[in-house]
Design a protein around this nucleic acid. Structure first.
Lengths: 353, 353
DNA sequence: AATTCAATCGTGTACGTACACGATTGAATT
DNA sequence: AATTCAATCGTGTACGTACACGATTGAATT
């Protein structure tokens, strides 16, 4: 390995060329006061000309700041390990950033419990945080938090779902509408003309979960745009247990004998798969999210494919966006839609998200 | 932001605890000689106990080595911009690693010309390189190079295709067989029982391109494993121009009136799409690679979907693997298969590869 | 004219590690 | 006993930037 060319461009060289001290150069670089306009211009001209970029390693080494990022996301429930993937991404980011003085404090809540969300919020606000990564499951309660964060000048990033018009640094997550369209496209390629299609929304809080609605809208829009004539029915189930799903699903299927495709708009698709196990007819089943239960259903072919939007990357990029912002390394886009992936039995193995 | 706790674990603290100088600690950390067994043990014990990890920034700052990585890949041809994606990944990696003293020297070759490959090899060997990223398009000629690199103790990484049993650090690229299986699965979901399926291999060097064969094998294996009865025909076309493809394809289709699905085993699928534009019957067309021509065919719906294996990530991870190896930050797995992605009209927009 | 003050700027030290160089030690050799 | 030598170890400087602190300057105020 060669030695680096030592007369390269650094603050020292800039100082020499500008006939000022490196202290002044430093002030110019960081836009701090204490520099006359004339000097600032001169130094900036030289910085421009040399295309000087501060050495990141030296910067971070010299700066002794520590940054603590609060992470407010659902805990992993017995029902689904979905949030283990964003968490894995967060952990990976922190591993990489540990040496740059970045730490993370988790504030996990139960995604079925508004009160636990509020409690997590309160704990986060009481902590000494320089940034927040937030999955805003409950809209009103999230707005309370983001207002306070904005007032306190603490930057925050949304993952998994967005609250528009907030002072958030960034949103990192799915484009729900578009993912519905994608599901529709694949299903339209698989379905026969005579097949009826069921959109199945399963949630204890159907009216609150605008996620499901957006996906359904995207799905229906695709069929409209392409003038595809299949009958599309919606089935709303406001319980998540096996028995309730089974009962309502059986009833719905009995009333629609031509139904051959089921599009489940969230990760509960594995519950439907279980219920359908003893259904006489083979149905095409499509759903959401790269979670263990769903992968097992891909394996035994009870689910045809699932849609996934890089849950691990969401966590990883969320932390990275905050880190870059806090250390003045540039800001991410306001809206960052993740790629929409189609996962099947034949490719889940390499999907390391 | 808080100040970091300054009495944290560093070489200085270790030296203090071990009653040695930081020079000795440094020697132990880097396994250099000049330390008695006893001292080495004592220092290692303290390192162990404190779970000490050297500060990467300080290490890289103190070390003034420069690393130059040679990149031997095909140039972007007028036919396909495929290699612009790995190159974009390489560029991104270099941007991130520039400040760590990493540079890249490209040696591009014409993927249709063996002699240009050999020439690129020779130029690379003449350069002062500390590592090589290689797309081994020509097997025999690549072996000549890897032998010399191995002798010269220069690490190298394969991307895009693998040469097993070489002393390569790592292979980063597709699992061709599995991608064929995935294509088969999706096609089997779309095809009707009576449909015949054509596997279309297009290459001027059919017998040399084992890529195509592996994909075909994976494709056929899936149908075998699932006892799917569709007739699967193979069409080999050893010219890549419009006219030749049109002629041979028309002939083949005329002889197989039930053919309704075409699986093109490489990126030439857009040529087939163009040829089929004035075909009376609407056929299902599936192919490979996220390149501009293919994206346009997804848009106008002349191609149903394409398979892509993260071309940009391949370049990115290839450089990263070499960097980590050269700086002693750990080695990647020997074989790194990329996720196999299904790209359609509805999701290509977010596929930033 | 002496003093005060803000604006502007330079110096010195620190971050944590790498490495060249020299110092020390004790055994082996003359 | 004097010398040589290898093994072992410590010291000092460097990497490039950040920032605290103090120095300088000149205008404004007394």
């Amino acid at each position: 390995m060669k030695e680096s060319n030592s007369n390269s461009t650094g603050v020292k060289e800039i100082a020499r060329l500008a006939n000022v001290s490196i202290g002044t150069v430093d002030r110019v670089i960081h836009n701090r006061k204490g520099v006359s306009d004339e000097t600032r211009k001169k130094v900036n001209a030289i910085i421009e000309e040399l295309d000087f970029r501060p050495n990141k390693m030296a910067s971070l080494l010299a700066r002794r700041d520590q940054v603590n990022i609060g992470v407010i996301i659902p805990k992993i429930s017995s029902e689904t390990n979905y949030w283990s993937y964003p968490l894995a991404g967060i952990t990976q980011a922190v591993d990489e950033l540990k040496q740059f003085g970045v730490t993370v404090t988790p504030f996990l809540y139960d995604s079925d419990s508004k009160s636990s969300f509020v409690e997590a919020e309160e704990r986060a606000l009481a902590a000494d945080l320089q940034g927040v990564l937030l999955a805003p499951s409950f809209i009103e309660e999230s707005l309370v938090l983001t207002k306070k964060l904005t007032d306190a000048n603490i930057p925050f990033v949304f993952i998994n779902s967005d609250l528009p018009r907030q002072e958030s640094l960034s949103y990192i997550g799915p484009d729900l509408f578009q993912s519905g369209r994608l599901a529709a496209q694949i299903i339209s390629m698989m379905a026969r003309e005579a097949d009826d299609i069921f959109i199945v929304n399963i949630s204890t809080e159907l009216e609150l979960d605008h996620h499901l609605l957006r996906k359904e809208q995207g799905f229906r829009k695709y069929f409209e745009d392409h003038n595809i004539a299949n009958t599309i029915l919606t089935l709303n189930i406001n319980h998540t247990d096996n028995q309730s799903v089974k009962k309502q699903l059986s009833k719905a299927l009995a009333s629609a004998p031509n139904a051959r495709v089921l599009f489940v708009t969230n990760s509960r698709v594995n519950v439907v798969a279980r219920v359908l196990a003893d259904h006489p007819q083979k149905l095409i089943l499509v759903g959401y999210d790269f979670i263990e239960e769903n992968i097992r259903c891909l394996e035994n072919e009870s689910i045809s494919f699932i849609i996934s939007q890089r849950p691990k990357e969401q966590g990883y990029h969320g932390i990275m966006a905050l880190y870059k912002h806090l250390f003045g390394l540039g800001d991410a886009e306001r809206t960052n839609y993740m790629p929409i992936d189609i996962i099947t039995k034949e490719n889940f193995h390499y999907y390391k998200n």
